[in-house]
Structure formats: structure tokens, C-alpha cells
């Protein structure tokens, strides 16, 4: 069982990202689950979304999770949300930030000694998609860090997931995914 927790603000696309990832993973024969905590669902409110991936049908519906990966797609949540909640010894963090990994850890000491990767998904999204929607680039970074799928296969699969969007937006998403894949450190 692979478990992923997303930290996001409502409107940044964590739910879409989690469902998009589930869609791609499902095509490879694995079983998936994607869900979120909504609360009162105000745009901009801190929220979490979740993925489970397993070789057999996912029957666990508890919301409690000890994540293998924590994906933070809003830079400020590192300081205001409990992103290390219920972590394991080997939980891997991928954080959207303009800072380097060293600068990030210096600014948030509770990440010290943990496996932390950084990538500026907000900037990548703004420069490619034209909006601060950091979800698809984060998936590119996850592919690099986790080695879950070959990046070309992943982009091809995401292309199908996004197929209802205008071509221009799909192309921009593909560039964003590749850039985050290349730039995550």
C-alpha cells in the first residue's frame, strides 16, 4: 500500500491532482483511492487530499493515514499546516517553494533530518499554464522523486486524463510536468 497526502488551498487543484494521479495509476492495473477533507470548502482555505494505491482493492476507508509521501502545493502551508502529522520514519516531503531545500529547512526546523525535496510548482504553473495551479507540476516532481512511472508514459497518460481541456492548456500542462520533473531537487 502506497499512501500520499496532499496539502493545498481549496482552489489550487489538489483534488483534481489526486484524482488525476488515481486515473493514471488505475490504467496500470493497480487499485486506487482518491479523496479529500473539504470542511466548509471556502476558496483559499487550507485543505488536504489523499491517495491510496495497492495491488488489491482498497477497502480501507479510514481518513487516518501515515503517508509515504507528503505533497505540499502551497508554499505557506509549510508554516501554518501540520504537514508532518502522522509521518513515518521514511516519509518523503515534496514542497512547492521558491527557496532551496536548505533554505526551506532553515525556515521550518521541523523538516530537519527528513527527506525533503523542493520545486517551485507555483512559478512553473504561472510560466506555463498562466495560472498558479500547481497540481500537475507537482505530479511531475513526484514521478522524479518516486520513480513511480517513466515520465514519458506518465505524460502520455495525463494527456488522456486532461483530454477535455483546450489543446493549448493540455500542452502547457505537459511542459509544466516535464519542467517540475527536471527541476525538483
Amino acid at each position: 500500500m502506497l499512501e500520499i497526502r496532499w496539502h493545498s488551498r481549496a482552489g489550487q487543484g489538489a483534488v483534481t491532482g489526486a484524482k488525476g494521479l488515481a486515473d493514471v495509476v488505475s490504467t496500470t492495473g493497480k487499485h486506487v483511492q482518491a479523496f479529500a477533507f473539504y470542511g466548509s470548502a471556502k476558496r483559499g482555505a487550507a485543505m488536504t487530499a489523499y491517495n491510496r494505491v495497492d495491488d488489491k482493492v482498497v477497502m480501507n476507508h479510514e481518513k487516518f493515514m501515515r503517508p509515504d509521501y507528503v505533497l505540499v502545493i502551497d508554499p505557506a502551508l509549510v508554516y501554518v499546516a501540520d504537514i508532518t502529522a502522522n509521518e513515518k520514519d521514511n516519509t518523503i516531503y515534496i514542497v512547492t517553494t521558491h527557496m532551496s531545500t536548505e533554505e526551506l529547512i532553515a525556515s521550518q526546523p521541523k523538516l530537519a533530518g527528513k527527506k525533503v525535496y523542493t520545486v517551485d510548482c507555483i512559478k512553473i504553473a504561472q510560466e506555463t499554464i498562466g495560472k498558479a495551479i500547481p497540481n500537475t507540476p507537482m505530479l511531475g516532481a513526484l514521478m522524479k522523486v518516486s520513480d513511480m512511472y517513466d515520465i514519458e508514459f506518465f505524460k502520455e497518460s495525463m494527456f488522456k486524463v486532461l483530454k477535455k481541456l483546450p489543446q493549448k492548456i493540455i500542452d502547457a500542462n505537459m511542459i509544466a510536468i516535464q519542467r517540475a520533473y527536471d527541476e525538483v531537487k
Binding site: 483511492q33 479523496f35 473539504y38 476507508h61
Partner: peptide
């Protein structure tokens, strides 16, 4: 069906 736990949880 369970609100959110089924209604908003994507599975195969």
C-alpha cells in the same frame, strides 16, 4: 451511499 467517504472518494 456514504457522504464523502463514497460520494467524493474516487476508486476504480
Amino acid at each position: 451511499q456514504d457522504g464523502f467517504m463514497t460520494s467524493h472518494t474516487a476508486q476504480g
